[in-house]
């Protein structure tokens, strides 16, 4: 399959030519395929944020290329804005970027910059609000009256309303309570299912990525160290630990069970998987 975004030997060096120069991303190659939900994981300082800001042309590579549908996005620097509408990026803590008088107007900011007006604009806003679970009566409220979690949903809707081909979310659940986190991730999953668009979910929580992603890219020390299906990635437990990450909690449980002599598959990475495996064991009459 043809990748929708190809990161081709991307390098980004901050402060080039000064004594403070530092490569945040070094020679990274990564393919993102249409329609997939890619999880991107890595701890603070691994270059995640720098990498994703290249995908929509907010940062210009100091080396290498970003190809969108096979075309270098910087081939025509004057048209970089079009890329930003096609690759929607939701920053970390996006609630701090709200500025309009009403929630509806704030969600409409992106699509209005694209030139949409009238009914088409209103439809987009309502649809986007629906995707993130905002009730229509909130659209006329001031964004500053809302709770933190609702503000975050407004900000995410503001990017979804541009109907990007690729939606990138940088730590969308950071600082939310567990219930808010689960419901937001559910919203993102159903958005992905309903629109069939590509979603990149950046996180530092293994559990979150394991539960949601089709494929996982692991970033460490300014590069991609592992990339593949969750099963492939979690089979490299030592590599993950070497870069300061761990396998999901449920995988740890499965590994411990195995160590104690239970015949269980060690490539388990969601709660659902573990339950199924344990059910199968019980039915098979194995010791439990």
């Amino acid at each position: 399959m043809e990748p929708i975004i190809r990161v081709d030997h991307l390098t980004h060096t901050y402060g080039q030519g000064t004594p403070f120069c530092r490569s945040a991303v070094k020679d990274v190659c990564l393919d993102i395929y249409p329609g997939e939900l890619l999880g991107m994981i890595g701890h603070t300082g691994s270059g995640k944020s720098t990498l994703i800001q290249h995908l929509n042309g907010l940062l210009k590579p100091t080396g290498g290329k970003i190809l969108f549908h096979g075309r270098d996005i910087w081939a025509e620097p004057g048209r970089i804005r079009d890329i930003r509408f096609k690759v929607g990026l939701v920053f970390q803590y996006p609630e701090y970027q709200l500025f309009e008088e009403t929630v509806g107007k704030d969600i409409a900011f992106g699509p209005r910059n694209m030139g949409l007006e009238g009914d088409a604009l209103r439809e987009r806003v309502e649809e986007a609000a629906g995707f993130v679970g905002l009730s229509p009566d909130l659209l006329d409220k001031s964004p500053f009256e809302l709770s933190g979690g609702q503000k975050r949903r407004v900000a995410i809707a503001g990017v979804i309303a541009m109907m990007p081909e690729v939606l990138i979310l940088d730590e969308p659940s950071a600082g939310l309570d567990p219930a808010g986190r689960d419901s937001l991730l559910n919203n993102i999953r159903s958005y992905h299912a309903a629109t069939g668009s590509t979603v990149v979910l950046v996180s530092h929580s293994m559990d979150e990525v394991a539960e949601n992603a089709d494929r996982i890219a692991v970033l460490a020390d300014a590069g991609v160290v592992l990339c593949g299906t969750p099963r492939e990635v979690f089979s490299h437990g030592e590599t993950l630990e070497a870069v300061g990450l761990t396998v999901p909690q449920v995988t740890k449980v499965a590994m411990e069970l195995r160590r104690r002599g239970v015949a269980i598959d060690s490539a388990i990475y969601t709660v659902e998987d573990l339950r199924r495996a344990l059910d199968a064991l019980r039915e098979g009459g194995a010791p439990c």
Partner: peptide, 12 residues
Amino acid sequence: KIMSAQKARGAD
């Protein structure tokens, strides 16, 4: 940061 976020929504 805010500038980047608004640029991502097409602000010019």
